[in-house]
Structure formats: C-alpha cells, structure tokens
Simulated assay, not measured.
Amino acid sequence: MKQLDRTELSLLVALPALILAAMVLPSWIVNYVQVSLGMGLVALGVMIQMRAGLVSFGQGLYFCIGGYAAGLAGKYLGISDLFALLLIGILAALIIATTLGFLLRRYREIFYAMLSLAVSMILYGLLSSTEELGSTDGFNLPVPTYLGMAPSGEAARMTLFIITAAVVVASAIALNRLLRSSLGYVNEAIRENELRVEYLGASAHNAVHVTYVIAAVVSSMGGVLWALSLGHVDPEMTNWTTSGSFVFVCILAGTGSIVAPLIGTFLLEILRVYAVEISPNTWQMILGTVMLLTIIFLPKGLWSLLAKSSTAKRFDPEADANTQPGE
C-alpha cells in the first residue's frame, strides 16, 4: 500500500476543514464552494488529459451526461438516492466514453480539441431541440435521499455538502495516485515524445483511451453532484462556453498539482460573480483579460507561484552559508 504524500495529506486535512467552514460561513459562500467542488471534478478530468498533452474542449459532454443521467433516473424511474444516481451517471459516461475513445485516441493537438468539442456540441443540439427533456430550459431533479434517509432543512443541506466534499477529496486522492502510477508517467512521456513511447513498447493509443475514460467518469460524477446541488439541469452544461471554462480553470490554476484545479474552480466562480457585478454587459472581457495576463506572466498557472516559493525555501543560499557544520 502506497504511503500518503503531502498532497494527499493536505486533501485529507482539507475535508474536515471544509465541513467546519460550512457550519459557520454564510450559506451563499457555502453554496459557491459546493458548486465549485462539483465543477472542480470536471476540471480535474481536463487536467489529467492535459498532463498527456491533450486539451479537451468538450469535457462539458460528460458533465452534462452525468447531470442528465441523474435527472432522467429521478424523473422517469423515481430514483432519488444520491449513491444510485452517482452510479447511473458513472455507467452512462463509461459506456459513451469507451465507445468514443476508440475514435478520439487516434488524434492529438488541435484535432483532439476540436473533435471533443464537436461531439459535445452535437449533444447540446439534441438536448436543446428535445421538448420531452425541457428543450433549452431543462428540468428539475428530485431532492436527494441517502440510503433510505431523507433529511430536511439544514440537515439536508449539510448532508449533501459533506458527501460532495468527501467524494471530491476521495476522487482527487485517487487521481493523484493515477498521476504517480505507470499510466501517469506514460502520459507525461506521450506529451514529450509519443514516438519514443511506442519504441519503448508502450501503447500511446491505449494510454490515451484509458485516460479519456477516467476523465469522463470523474466529470460525470461532477455533473451529478453539481446538478443535485442546484436541483436543475439544462443543455448549457454541454455548451462550448461551459467546456471552455474548465480549460480556463486549468490554465488559470496550472496543472502542477491535483489540488490546483479545485482551488482554481472556486477562484473562477468568485471572479465571475464580481465581474458580472462590476460590468454586467462585458464581464467576459474581464475573464478574458485575466486569462491573457495569466498566460503571459504565469504560463504554468497560479500554482507555479507556490511551487517557486517551495523551491526557494528548500534552497536558500544565505541560510546554507549561515549554517554551521553539524547543524
């Protein structure tokens, strides 16, 4: 059994901290955190693909599949149990991603990005024109239950928050271990030199396919949790603007740590709220400006600031010079 690294320990510490914060912070802040946690899972799906040099502009596809699978199960099958809805969302994403993966694993760079976007927009068009699914308005989800328990009021809000936080932390730890596994190292090698990976006997196509499926499953979980938090789904979940926001998060936060996209998602939500308040008609320009400045001055994202600070602390020439032998 692998030892927990610093990132995983930080995530385990963050879980009770989030729960305690939810008990004392205003409900609107807690709501933003909860929504950000669901979307953060989708950003993690984008991030693990970027570690392989693949940029998915269509990750909203699985975000939407998870939310709609949960919504349809509640609307037509009467299922309201959160864990059952999560399982249904995962199975739907698993089937679709495994099928589409045979096509997408053959492409790289802009072709991968555009093809993933095209598939996502096909679903957007279908949902927007289907009146039985609410067309562009979408439809509401049932209030979730938990293994037969149906809390109400404040207890219901806290229960959903705790489970959402626990699922996100567990998923982040699992993905962190994925990045440290042989598949994670192969993905980094694919990003640097795919031809050399093939020469060494590993299959780049298989590695990309597996990574794509894992990213889809994680994103669908985020879609289910997000949809249950808001109690509603609509086709905007798979629109290109939604998928683009997940890529924006990874650019803003960086891909140096599994924690970065989770923090970046919350920062983006706060930035969007204040941008809309400051400039309701041109708030997109504020987001675009922030993205442009980040790319120019912090090409590896905000997380690179923490990485530089950590490196500077580990290697301080003045401290080393003042250290006496034997200290």
Rank of each mutant, 00 (worst) to 15 (best):
R180K: 14
A155R: 14
E269H: 06
R6E: 05
G264D: 00
T255F: 00
A189L: 09
F102A: 10
A319S: 05
A260N: 11
T7D: 05
T311W: 07
A69L: 00
P151D: 04
L9R: 12
G231N: 06
A312E: 09
L61H: 06
L85P: 00
N322K: 11
D320N: 07
W240S: 02
G288I: 11
I214K: 05
L179A: 13
P142A: 10
M291D: 04
V33Q: 02
V290C: 13
A174E: 08
E109Y: 12
M291S: 11
E277I: 11
Y146F: 15
L302V: 02
N187A: 14
G125K: 04
L41D: 01
M291G: 05
A202Y: 15
V259T: 14
R108C: 08
F102T: 09
P151C: 07
I214M: 11
I296V: 15
L123G: 11
L127C: 12
M221Y: 02
E8M: 02
S229E: 05
P325F: 15
F248E: 02
I96Y: 03
L175W: 02
T211P: 02
V233K: 01
N206M: 13
Y62K: 01
M237F: 12
S56G: 02
N176Q: 12
D320P: 01
A215K: 01
